[in-house]
Nucleic acid binder design. Structure first.
Length: 446
DNA sequence: AACCTCACG
DNA sequence: ACGTACGTGAGGTTC
């Protein structure tokens, strides 16, 4: 398997000795999880050396520009205050904009902006962003509520919370990487969670400017390009998908051209968008309903799109049924490296419960293999840094991305090591590509 | 403690 | 007839 690129048992013992204290906390829970889930084969190769790597990352921590966060906090608090006043003026009533219950009652009982409002299983009105967005033309208060939610989220979850987490001794934030939490083999991050720092919205992504390198260092970020779809291509062996990746094509454009039967140059924005959503849908366990919801098309159109997809990538369709059958036969599915996920509901008589397990059967090997691969890369990068006496530090992992606090004089060397180890962590039937960036902060490096 | 909502890959 | 895409963690409200 991956023995030759990973640590031997002897090599592992030596390194653990050097970091005994750091890994001792983590060791017991990892050992237990591994034993429970019969994953001994991953123990010495991946999870044990990863303990030391994660312990170092936690100890290193990440430097935060708290002055800039505090300045943003003042501005956001002012905006919250004025939105609250406007909301009172617009509705003639004082209510808590943070309360989903009160917001629902104002919108649907008092203002009656829609005849039939969607409710949760507990009988409360649904006021999620999705619902509110669709009702934003009905009454100006709806947009105000969305604006309030956006700002309040940034303020309380990030701008106010992060400075509170700065360690007095180190002046940095030290997250916890949880090695035994997820069902698929991914890590999770908590106290604080540094794997969900905003990036999608223009306003939210500004928070990343506060994540800065040490003096004399730069922020270096490297991430895998389309790793889950590449794994899909690898696991299914689908000829068309493998060829598209080997030709270095943009996978969503290539998918679109094949589904719609046009040249790559003729693919429109809408066509690409549909293919991209379909590609993600496949990874998550697609349904015509789900796809139509996300694309805003009819279920029939979505069904046609899915049929076109499977015609284009017939072995992907085979992979899906093989995965589900494997789960039914064995009670589990596994990643490329043999990490198992048990699916006890796979033969459930309840079709909703069973369908959920079937989607897990499709998704877990893909998400889990990606998790295994980046873990292998982390272990190998950590070893190279030690061997080559690199002072720069690995500081953050965000599922398909690694971030480093890099001594300026080491930048070229670190770049070379990180990209090489990420791209060669495991040989798939398609190339594994890592992109990277450098900057004065996390936003600029991304 | 449960629920709703929302931030990320 | 049914409910509806995978995996997480955190803040605020409600009970």
């Amino acid at each position: 398997m991956a023995d030759e690129i990973l640590l031997t048992r002897e090599g592992y013992e030596k390194i653990v000795k050097e970091h005994e204290e750091l890994v001792s906390v983590r060791r017991a829970e990892v050992a237990e999880k591994i034993k429970e889930e019969k994953l001994e084969h991953l123990f010495y190769d991946i999870e044990m050396p990863l303990m030391k790597c994660l312990a170092k990352m936690e100890l290193n921590g990440v430097r935060i520009d708290s002055a800039s966060l505090n300045a943003s906090a003042d501005k956001l608090r002012e905006e919250i205050f004025s939105i609250q006043n406007e909301a009172i003026e617009m509705t003639g009533e004082e209510f808590n904009l943070s309360s989903a219950k009160q917001v629902g009652e104002i919108l649907f009982d008092k203002l009656k902006i829609v005849e039939k409002a969607k409710k949760t299983k507990t009988g409360q009105y649904v006021t999620s962003e999705e619902v509110l967005e669709s009702l934003s033309s009905k009454h100006p208060i709806v947009k105000k509520i969305l604006e309030y939610r956006g700002i309040k989220k940034l303020l309380s979850t990030y701008v106010e919370a992060l400075p509170e987490m700065i360690n007095a001794k180190t002046g940095k934030i030290h997250t916890s990487y949880n090695q035994t939490v997820t069902a698929t083999g991914r890590l999770s991050s908590s106290n604080p969670n540094l794997q969900n720092i905003p990036i999608r919205d223009e306003m939210g992504k500004e928070i990343r400017r506060a994540f800065i390198p040490d003096e004399g260092h730069v922020f270096f970020s490297a991430d895998y390009s389309q790793i889950e779809l590449r794994i899909m291509a690898h696991l299914s062996g689908d000829e068309n998908m493998v060829n598209a990746f080997n030709a270095g094509e943009d996978i969503h454009t290539a998918t679109s051209a094949k589904i719609y039967g046009v040249e790559i140059s003729e693919v429109t924005k809408d066509m690409r968008r549909n293919a991209k959503t379909a590609n993600f849908g496949i990874i998550y366990g697609i349904s015509a309903f789900g796809l139509s919801e996300r694309l805003g098309i009819s279920r029939t159109e979505a069904k046609t799109l899915i049929e076109g997809y499977f015609k284009t990538y017939p072995q992907v369709q085979e992979y899906i049924s093989n995965s589900i059958n494997k789960a039914k036969d064995n009670g589990y599915v596994e990643t490329i490296f043999g990490r198992k996920r048990y699916l006890s509901d796979i033969n459930s008589a309840n079709s909703v419960v069973r369908a959920f397990a079937e989607r897990n059967a499709v998704n877990a090997p893909i998400q889990g293999s990606a998790a295994d691969i980046i873990k292998i890369a982390m272990v190998n990068i950590d070893r190279r840094f030690t061997q080559e006496n690199i002072q720069s530090q690995m500081i953050l992992q965000v599922h398909d991305e690694l971030n480093f606090n890099v001594l300026e004089s080491e930048l070229e060397k670190v770049k070379e090591i990180v990209i090489e180890e990420m791209q060669n962590a495991y040989k798939l039937r398609v190339p594994l590509i890592a992109d990277y960036g450098v900057g004065k902060n996390w936003l600029e490096a991304h």
